[in-house]
Design a protein around this nucleic acid. Structure first.
Lengths: 201, 201
DNA sequence: TGTACATCAGTGAACGCGCGTTCACTGATGTAC
DNA sequence: TGTACATCAGTGAACGCGCGTTCACTGATGTAC
């Protein structure tokens, strides 16, 4: 059967999207190419006309997921004029995100697997992360200078990722929810500490 | 060949230790039973007279690693009378730890893999973590009440784990070192914020 | 004291299975003449 | 307008390989008589 213009590109995007969800849900190593293609409604044979290798798909799927998440978070921040950072933190550190890694932050879902990926994949993620941190920094209270804000933003980001992972490790729902709440409160403390510092120089 | 009393138990412990290092270095899924046994100087056949399954070894190796790390960290804290928490943070958030996951924190090394392990393994890790958080809390400034300290300790712990992972994701040595340093400074801020809160109630 | 047998930690070959990857093929549509 | 051929996204069987696991075996020492 012949297909419409752009059909192959659509299929490719579809595979990337499905893969990005499967990876976040089950882990990169745990899911195979055949399962992935089946999940996308296709058969395994076609995979290599879209991607050079599984690693090629991994890099694309991970970046796609990272971009989607940071876009969504920054949008939450920017559509809440009062306290953008609080909105961003609440969009991340919530129970729904905790239970749905497949549509959430790829770093929280796969951090330890990403660290051991080939340089190209890892560096791409690291780049994206540094970018995102800078965008958090831009949204911190402008009283502090840029360097201080970036350094506060990095710790806020680390706290977000670490908190989500700890919350997912814990089975007790109530404790897990409290960990998330406390994460928001403590991240906000870091932000306000950073803005206070300026006056003490 | 017949072996000395307690020889088998020694071998078992040796396998657990080697496995805990290999897992942290390469990831749990990535390393096979045969490689593991070879790394321990043995052959694969003997494995199942020591462990019920690979998962059995995983649970033991992960817990063994967790206990070793928390023991070392608390020791660092307790042998520094002035500021135990600072000593603990410095023992964790340093460049050597960043470069040596195989002998470091198993949560930072394997967080995302641990989240997807069977309940028994995951729950065991979660338990140990909660324990460790309580022991950090005991070492926070006693001005705050217990609940506040535990909640601060949880975020400090999340910040430690998240910071180490972000530092490992980044290739730039200088940036990586700065992320670790800032992690220490910001974790200390969280601790001192928690002790200040009491007076505001 | 000497011989026959039991013990048991560790060996190494083999099992079925799912992995990532390859490739000859299908079949609906587009193009050439 | 009709026929023959080219295109190419997707199919499905097969490849070698390493996985977790099993099992008959080894061989040095301990025990029984």
């Amino acid at each position: 059967m012949r297909y419409a213009e752009g059909h192959k590109e659509e299929t490719r995007k579809h595979i990337v999207k499905v893969a990005s969800q499967c990876f976040r849900r089950e882990g990169i190593e745990k899911i195979g190419v055949a399962t992935l293609m089946e999940e996308a409604g296709l058969t395994v044979g076609g995979f290599y006309s879209h991607f050079k290798s599984k690693e090629g798909l991994i890099k694309e799927a991970v970046l796609c997921a990272a971009e989607e998440t940071s876009y969504r978070l920054l949008e939450a921040a920017d559509s809440t004029p009062g306290d953008g950072l609080k909105a961003l933190l609440e969009a991340y550190l919530n129970v729904a995100h905790r239970h749905n890694p497949q549509s959430g932050c790829v770093i929280a879902a796969l951090a330890s697997e990403l660290i051991n990926r080939p340089d190209k994949t890892r560096a791409a993620v690291a780049n994206h992360t540094e970018n995102f941190v800078n965008q958090i920094a831009d949204r911190l209270s402008p009283e502090a200078d840029h360097d201080r804000r970036v350094r506060a933003a990095r710790s806020i980001w680390a706290l977000m990722v670490g908190t989500m992972q700890v919350a997912r490790l814990v089975s007790d729902e109530e404790l897990s929810a409290q960990i998330l709440e406390d994460g928001i409160a403590n991240a906000l403390k870091l932000a306000s500490e950073a803005s206070l510092e300026r006056s003490s120089i």
